[in-house]
């Protein structure tokens, strides 16, 4: 694959995810969304970057999936509608925040059991032979059925990229309290091409590009969740903020962000006025 990294495209996607999620947080706070929401504020860069290398792939996500949906070309309007429970939502308003599906992407949802999407994605890759990307967290990654799925993908040399968005949290429990081993060590020993990187798009891009030539593969991306597991609250300022770092180095960052922000605000306002 000869793609060069396109920082502006990645930055634009990150801004879209950030401002979309902040819009959700606001609507949630105002009780315009009366059900649970799982936000990816702070966790924009993994899917924003991976999606630039995996166009047309089938995507399988878990509960924190707005980011992957938007990054992989999902229709933001349909996601707004989904979160508001409208029939025009990407899932007819029946899935809500944790269960997003849209075959136009194509993206497949799950029903809320963490890591459930990992075997599903694996079976999809086997049956279709098409590039499949599965996104999940560091807790889902350690589920017993996830581990076997990686092994199955190795045995059958499946065209699948497993992406672990590692925020070091299972709700509030950090990895050190759950296990003393790394999932990428296990996947490596199973024969999957495996990498562990920071949430810097350049690092993600370089590693993912190599991995995509050696599928099946596993990439662990350290990332930082800014808000609570569920809902719009937070416990003070985040430990790190990749989007803020990107603002400093991307030429024209401010114009891009202003434009995306206005676009997202408009999406929400248009729908909220109708309610």
């Amino acid at each position: 694959m000869g793609e060069q990294i396109n920082f502006k495209e990645i930055f634009r996607k990150m801004c879209l995810i950030r401002h979309f999620e902040l819009g959700v947080a606001e609507a949630y706070k105002e009780k315009l969304i009366p059900w649970l929401v799982y936000l990816a504020v702070g966790q924009e860069s993994p899917s924003a970057t991976i999606s630039t290398l995996t166009k047309g792939a089938a995507v399988f996500t878990q509960h924190r999936g707005h980011s992957a949906y938007l990054a992989h070309g999902g229709n933001p309007q349909k996601l707004v509608d989904e979160l508001l429970g409208l029939e025009s939502g990407c899932c007819g308003g029946k899935g809500g925040s944790p269960c997003i599906q849209d075959l136009d992407v194509p993206m497949y949802g799950h029903h809320g059991l963490i890591g459930e999407n990992i075997p599903l994605a694996t079976g999809h890759a086997l049956a279709t032979g098409k590039l499949t990307v599965a996104y999940f967290g560091d807790a889902a990654a350690e589920e017993d059925y996830a581990l076997t799925s990686y092994g199955f993908a190795a045995t059958h040399k499946l065209p699948i990229l497993y992406v672990c968005e590692d925020n070091d949290l299972s709700i509030l429990t950090p990895i050190k309290d759950r296990r003393n081993w790394q999932v990428y060590d296990v996947t490596r020993s199973m024969g999957l091409a495996s990498a562990a990187v920071d949430d810097d798009p350049k690092e993600i891009f370089t590693a993912a590009k190599q991995l995509l030539n050696r599928l099946p593969a596993f990439i662990n991306i350290k990332t930082c969740r800014h808000l609570w597991h569920q809902g719009n609250n937070c416990d003070g300022p985040p430990k790190s903020d990749r989007l803020a770092e990107m603002r400093k180095v991307i030429p024209g960052a401010s114009e891009i962000e202003t434009e995306v922000k206005a676009y997202v605000r408009n999406l929400w306002q248009k729908q909220l006025q109708k309610l």
């Binding site: 075997p119 599903l120 694996t122 581990l147």
Partner: peptide, 10 residues
């Protein structure tokens, strides 16, 4: 458990 998940994915 994963087996049945893989089968459902297929």
């Amino acid at each position: 458990v994963s087996n049945m998940g893989i089968a459902c994915g297929a």
